[in-house]
Simulated scan of single mutants.
Amino acid sequence: MSATGEVVTSASALAVAGETLMLLPEKAVYWPARQMLIIADIHFGKAASFRAQGMPVPSGTTTENLAGLDDLIERHGARHVMFLGDFLHARAAHASSTQQAMLAWRHTRQELQLTLVRGNHDKHAGDPAAALGIELVDEPHTVGPFAFCHHPDLDMDNDAGYALAGHVHPAWVLATRYDALRLPCFVVGSQRMILPSFGSFTGGHVVTREAGDAIYVTSGEAVHAIR
Rank of each mutant, 00 (worst) to 15 (best):
A130Y: 07
A131H: 10
I134K: 08
I134L: 11
E135N: 10
L136Y: 08
D138M: 07
E139G: 05
E139M: 06
P140N: 03
P140Q: 02
H141I: 01
T142W: 04
P145T: 08
P145A: 10
P145E: 07
F146I: 06
A147Y: 02
F148S: 04
F148G: 04
C149V: 09
C149K: 07
C149Q: 06
H151F: 12
P152R: 06
D155Q: 15
D155L: 14
D155K: 14
M156K: 13
M156Q: 15
M156D: 13
D157A: 15
D159R: 08
D159F: 06
A160I: 09
A160P: 07
G161A: 10
Y162H: 01
A165Y: 07
A165T: 05
G166F: 01
V168L: 09
V168P: 00
A171G: 14
W172E: 07
W172F: 12
V173Y: 00
V173E: 14
V173W: 00
L174G: 05
A175F: 05
A175M: 08
T176R: 12
T176C: 07
T176K: 10
T176S: 15
R177L: 14
Y178N: 15
D179P: 02
D179G: 05
D179S: 13
A180S: 15
L183A: 06
L183F: 09
P184T: 03
P184V: 03
P184M: 05
V188H: 12
V188R: 11
G189Q: 09
G189V: 08
S190P: 08
Q191M: 09
Q191S: 14
L195F: 03
P196D: 13
G199D: 01
G199Y: 03
F201N: 04
T202H: 06
T202S: 08
G203Q: 01
G203T: 00
G204K: 06
H205K: 14
V207T: 02
V207D: 01
R209H: 01
R209T: 00
E210V: 08
E210S: 14
A211S: 14
A211K: 14
G212D: 09
A214H: 14
A214D: 15
A214M: 13
I215D: 00
S219R: 12
S219C: 13
E221I: 11
V223D: 01
